[in-house]
Design a protein around this nucleic acid. Structure first.
Lengths: 103, 103
DNA sequence: CTTTTTCGTAAGACATAGCTTACGGTAAGC
DNA sequence: GCTTACCGTAAGCTATGTCTTACGAAAAAG
């Protein structure tokens, strides 16, 4: 049910940049914003969307909030995609047979 | 490189509805529009985006255009996701060990 | 206790995505 | 040849997402 939020969250290029940057490891908001061409509040808003989609989680560390990747959302997206992938392949095979000259 | 287009394409709910409807098999544009709460030109526009993302393909059949799923785009998206999935799991494990009390 | 750092949220401006109506083009049917 | 069915594209309107600046809160530092 959450794969929809994950899709809309990862659709935005800036949000993907934030997400892929967290791949290198947990990071605070300011650190993320420093390497992006947008303001820090904008990064916060993006993180909120990613968190809502189950793609990231955060923990407090002093005055800073450390964000890291949450496999939860990715898993949901992957399951949906895999389930789709099978029927897509079947359809592809059927189409190939249809196009091919009759044996 | 094409996983980005696939993501933005599948982010729209209506476009997902079109895409999931093609799961039942190849269908012409009018048939798709008949079961959706939007106009036929709108469906055409969505199909254009899906086609551009490598998610669907079309063939002519008389005056009608039959659209069917193209595994190409799904494959690209799946590869990107899988590659992401591994590092996400590693990070998750690392986070779990970090949170756990020192043994 | 005061100051500084770090962050989230609110309000508003701006751009873009998605829808509709209108139009033209191609193939089939008569 | 003429009409009908089916479709893609263009133009325009509207809604929504994304950005910035401004503000307030919480923890550390001094």
């Amino acid at each position: 049910m959450s794969y929809e939020k994950a899709l809309t969250a990862l659709a935005d290029p800036t949000r993907r940049a934030v997400f892929e940057r967290l791949r290198a490891g947990p990071q605070p908001v300011g650190e993320l914003a420093r390497h992006l061409p947008i303001s820090r509040p904008a990064v916060s808003q993006h993180l909120k969307v990613l968190k809502d989609a189950g793609l990231v989680t955060d923990r407090a560390e002093g005055t800073r909030r450390i964000y890291h990747i949450d496999p939860h959302g990715l898993g949901a997206l992957r399951r949906w995609l895999d389930q789709f992938w099978e029927t897509a392949l079947d359809a592809f095979v059927a189409e190939a047979e249809r196009t091919a000259d009759k044996p």
